[in-house]
Measured scan of single mutants.
Amino acid sequence: VTLFVALYDYEARTEDDLSAHKGEKFQILNSSEGDWWEARSLTTGETGYIPSNYVAPV
């Protein structure tokens, strides 16, 4: 399991995006899409895309 933590708040801009709150942890499901990674929030269980530069490894 690849875990990352949000460094900043991010507000989803499309229905495919996933909002993130600073300190929230995510499981990365797919990081092969360049700057946008598919992730699952460990807080809400929701999945979507987050900007890779907004997260760091735990």
Rank of each mutant, 00 (worst) to 15 (best):
1 V>C: 15
1 V>I: 12
1 V>H: 13
2 T>D: 13
3 L>Y: 13
3 L>P: 06
3 L>N: 06
4 F>M: 10
4 F>I: 07
5 V>D: 04
5 V>N: 00
6 A>V: 07
7 L>P: 02
7 L>A: 03
7 L>D: 03
8 Y>M: 11
8 Y>V: 08
8 Y>G: 06
8 Y>D: 08
8 Y>L: 09
9 D>I: 05
9 D>P: 06
9 D>N: 07
9 D>A: 06
9 D>R: 01
10 Y>N: 00
10 Y>Q: 00
10 Y>R: 03
10 Y>T: 02
10 Y>D: 02
10 Y>W: 15
10 Y>I: 12
10 Y>V: 06
11 E>G: 04
12 A>Q: 06
12 A>W: 03
14 T>C: 15
14 T>N: 14
14 T>P: 02
15 E>T: 12
15 E>R: 10
16 D>G: 15
16 D>C: 15
16 D>W: 15
16 D>M: 14
16 D>E: 12
17 D>G: 15
17 D>Y: 13
17 D>I: 08
17 D>S: 12
17 D>P: 00
18 L>R: 01
18 L>H: 02
18 L>C: 05
19 S>Y: 05
20 A>N: 01
20 A>E: 00
20 A>T: 14
20 A>I: 15
20 A>F: 15
21 H>W: 07
21 H>L: 09
21 H>F: 14
21 H>D: 05
22 K>M: 09
22 K>E: 07
22 K>L: 06
22 K>I: 11
23 G>W: 05
23 G>N: 04
23 G>L: 01
23 G>H: 03
23 G>K: 01
25 K>F: 15
25 K>S: 06
25 K>E: 09
25 K>L: 15
26 F>I: 06
26 F>W: 03
26 F>V: 04
27 Q>V: 15
27 Q>Y: 14
28 I>E: 00
29 L>W: 05
29 L>C: 07
29 L>V: 07
29 L>D: 04
30 N>Y: 07
30 N>G: 09
31 S>Y: 12
31 S>L: 09
31 S>N: 12
31 S>P: 10
31 S>F: 15
32 S>R: 11
32 S>A: 11
32 S>H: 11
33 E>T: 12
33 E>W: 11
33 E>H: 14
33 E>K: 14
33 E>P: 10
34 G>P: 14
34 G>V: 11
34 G>Y: 09
34 G>R: 12
35 D>L: 12
35 D>N: 09
36 W>D: 03
36 W>S: 07
36 W>A: 06
36 W>C: 12
37 W>V: 10
37 W>E: 00
37 W>C: 05
37 W>H: 03
37 W>Q: 03
38 E>Y: 15
38 E>D: 04
38 E>T: 11
39 A>D: 01
39 A>Y: 06
39 A>F: 14
40 R>F: 07
40 R>P: 00
40 R>K: 12
41 S>F: 03
41 S>Y: 03
42 L>I: 10
42 L>G: 01
42 L>D: 03
42 L>A: 05
43 T>N: 09
43 T>S: 12
43 T>I: 10
44 T>Y: 03
44 T>K: 02
45 G>H: 05
45 G>K: 04
45 G>D: 04
45 G>C: 11
46 E>Q: 14
46 E>R: 15
46 E>W: 06
47 T>R: 10
47 T>F: 07
48 G>E: 00
48 G>T: 04
48 G>R: 01
48 G>W: 05
49 Y>R: 14
49 Y>E: 01
49 Y>N: 07
49 Y>S: 05
49 Y>V: 06
50 I>Y: 02
50 I>D: 02
51 P>W: 08
51 P>N: 10
51 P>I: 03
52 S>V: 07
52 S>P: 06
52 S>I: 06
53 N>W: 15
53 N>R: 13
53 N>Q: 11
53 N>I: 10
53 N>F: 11
54 Y>R: 08
54 Y>I: 15
55 V>A: 03
55 V>M: 13
55 V>R: 00
55 V>D: 01
56 A>W: 09
56 A>H: 08
56 A>G: 09
57 P>V: 08
57 P>C: 08
57 P>M: 09
57 P>S: 06
58 V>L: 12
58 V>H: 06
